[in-house]
Amino acid sequence: MHHDSRRHDIDALRCLVFSLLILYHTALMYLEGSSFHLRSSYATDALNMPLVFINRWRMEIVFLISGVSCAMMTPTSRGAFLWRRIKRLLLPLLFGMAIIIPIQPYCEGVSHGLVEPGFGRFLLHYFGGHAWPAGAFAGWQYGFTWNHLWYLVYLLLYIIVLVTLQPLLQRITPYFRRLRGWRLLVLPALPTLAAMALLKMRYPENHALVGDWYAHAIYFTLFMYGWWLGNDKGLWQELARLRWHSLWLALSAFFLYQYFDKIHSENLLTWASFGSWPMRNMYMWLAICAILGWSHILLNRPFAWLSWARQAVFPWYILHQSAIVLLAYWLVPLQLGPVLEPLLVLTGTVAICWLGTSLLISKVNWLRPCFGLPARPRQAVAADTSLAAN
């Protein structure tokens, strides 16, 4: 990607959305009835509405930003593009699954009382294809898990589909790029609404890649929206122009969605679903339009923190959930209270990600690609050492 044409708003937005992920995953420990890997004894129902407010668009916008990034890469042949993406995503996925993730099922299993304490023995079992007791940890049926790295698996799949069907998908681009005014704010919510009506009850989201048709329909659609949006100046200007409209409409859609959902949960098919489902999809798309429009106005400048954050975002993403789970595993039994405990989990997670990335990952040349960072060119490494010698 050429640095002069860098879209600072997309870079900044990616960093902010992934930072939100750390807050979100920490908050899940404190949500009453949540199915997060570890739960605090200080769970509350008060977090339900703010978490739904974020959750209805947070992964959708991550896939959309991934699509935008794919569209903005310097044009190469489809094969070269695919190979570059596979190299960038597959190694962190495999490394993360082998080294970073296993701490999560271990902590989860021990806290459930279904895994014997002792991390070394757990690892021997984990990699030795051991059969786990039912419910030991998320993914126990498969014997292993990719937990929060499912996003990398799905992204790789969508990139392969995109490259395969590119000539076909390119034909839709002009239609998408012509959307203006109310059409831009309403029409893109209809395919996801159709996916919800046809697939949500039949295929609840499982992140297991197989049989996850509802999730694929939603996330691939948003990935494609991002790809079509790409570098199109007209659409970005339109999103910026509509930013107040999309903001107020998004908030209204959210309250209507909550109203219908309070009458009947959206996982039941009742007359209320005819209000709840369209409003949920309208809220999701309007919120994304508002975020894109506002960030294009406010974030499209070379902030001082941006070049650091751009490097840090991938390693932080890989590390954050294992850090949260490990800290919760140590801190929850200490009963430190409903303020100190989440504060320690949050600051500890940031500290682990910060120190892990700046002291270790970015410095060790063979570790960099394992966390999605480009290997440093040799002359730069030589320059570093010569500076150190002076």
Results as ranks from 00 to 15, higher is better:
149 L>F: 03
69 S>G: 11
342 P>D: 06
376 R>L: 06
178 R>G: 15
160 I>V: 12
296 H>C: 03
239 L>W: 10
264 H>C: 11
372 G>P: 07
312 A>K: 10
92 P>I: 04
389 A>Y: 12
34 S>V: 11
90 L>A: 13
213 W>K: 12
100 I>P: 03
129 G>R: 02
125 H>S: 13
132 W>A: 02
53 F>M: 07
73 M>F: 02
377 P>N: 00
337 G>V: 00
327 L>G: 02
15 C>P: 10
65 I>G: 08
19 S>C: 02
318 I>N: 00
334 L>S: 04
333 P>H: 10
216 H>V: 08
83 W>E: 05
250 A>V: 00
230 G>S: 11
333 P>D: 12
312 A>E: 13
325 V>W: 09
106 Y>H: 08
259 Y>G: 03
103 I>H: 06
270 T>G: 09
85 R>F: 01
253 A>P: 04
55 N>L: 02
182 W>N: 06
288 I>K: 13
307 S>N: 15
334 L>H: 03
323 A>D: 08
42 Y>L: 07
130 H>P: 09
23 L>D: 01
118 G>T: 11
146 W>S: 03
91 L>I: 09
98 A>F: 15
377 P>C: 00
385 T>P: 04
161 V>E: 02
173 T>K: 04
71 A>I: 07
128 G>L: 02
133 P>T: 04
374 P>S: 10
105 P>T: 02
3 H>L: 06
149 L>Y: 01
383 A>S: 12
305 W>K: 09
273 S>Y: 04
261 D>H: 07
300 N>R: 14
65 I>H: 08
30 Y>S: 01
128 G>E: 01
291 I>A: 05
221 T>P: 07
125 H>N: 14
62 V>Q: 02
199 L>I: 08
389 A>K: 15
77 S>G: 15
273 S>W: 04
309 A>C: 14
166 Q>T: 04
225 Y>Q: 06
234 G>I: 10
236 W>K: 03
72 M>Y: 00
86 I>S: 10
